[in-house]
Design a protein around this nucleic acid. Sequence first.
DNA 1: CGTCTATTTGAATGTACTCAAAAGCGGTGG
DNA 2: CCACCGCTTTTGAGTACATTCAAATAGACG
Lengths: 192, 192
Amino acid sequence: MFDRLRKNIEKKVILTDEEFAGITPSFKRIQLKKKERLLSNGQVSNFVVFVDKGSLRSYTIDEKGNEHILQFAFENYWIGDLYSYLTDAPSALNIEAMEATEVLYVSKTDMEALYEKEPKLDRFMRLQVQNAYVALQKRLNAAMSVPTEDRYLELMRVHPDILVRVPLIYIASYLGVTPESLSRIRRQLTVK
Amino acid sequence: MFDRLRKNIEKKVILTDEEFAGITPSFKRIQLKKKERLLSNGQVSNFVVFVDKGSLRSYTIDEKGNEHILQFAFENYWIGDLYSYLTDAPSALNIEAMEATEVLYVSKTDMEALYEKEPKLDRFMRLQVQNAYVALQKRLNAAMSVPTEDRYLELMRVHPDILVRVPLIYIASYLGVTPESLSRIRRQLTVK
DNA sequence: CGTCTATTTGAATGTACTCAAAAGCGGTGG
DNA sequence: CCACCGCTTTTGAGTACATTCAAATAGACG
């Protein structure tokens, strides 16, 4: 039931069976249909979720109505809006299932209580955020210095599953280009 | 001597005089001349610094030899390479003084000892990283969805001091455009 | 099978880039 | 104190790359 969650946490901190059992009651399993939203912009992200099955994307919508994907989340990923979570301000993000998805949901209230009760989880989350920060910095740097084609190839290299699970329009949005441009880049690649 | 540091930490956690006195011996004051480097790529960033006076920039150099600025750090900023710090891997970043600068330097060894000794500092750094993450996410999103001109104006609005302290070439690099392009954008703005 | 969405392709446009050169500015040494 | 040197900023011209708009094709799903 919570195998995947435990394995994920234990990549960073080891828990006894008792400790883990103390955590699980705060996690609620939620089923999402394709295109169903976990968070809509304007709402407060007073939760965090762990993806047990399926996939989601978080994205903003600009004033022209264009979507910009910030993050994909597959099995074993954590997702939420940290800004909104920390400040209790309305979120600018939307978080939506890309396919039938199951997440383990913890409310902010429960999460803060867990941090108090189980310091290892506190440490776990700190490491989690640090890693996320590092990954984000790398991505920003790539966005500024690496051609779209190379970033596409790199993404496919690191996440070959994305190609089959995620439509091109979303990949294009994640890379910061239009679907048309990515389609052309792809064609160039098949020619080579 | 450490007034600015204390004020900075106490924006997030309150320390008694004793607690603060327990921390300061780990900080070493370092003077940097203009263009002098705190970190060169290839070195391990086994430290973190607090900027007490002056300013620095962190940047990468791509295979074409172009620089890409990731971060500016003025008075009251913390800077280092978190990735290299966490993993002990050689850094891809350069950190360089933009003017005569004074930083308060803590080695990783000392810092980890301080975390053990003073849990409040642990909490402080966690909040620090969380805020940095949130700011970075916002910047990535803006880079994808907001025109350069608007990002330039926003930067000037939030940091009017940058205009006078930082050369245009660095601002251009931070925004992810060439100096020529930013110069033209600026001209457009004066016409309007 | 039909409908809705995703992907591809084409043509015209625009935005930022490169390369080159001139003008401006600041700091240093004579 | 001024002249010079190096670096920054501006300007111009040509080019490359991604965008927009429009339309055709392909695929997915009920």
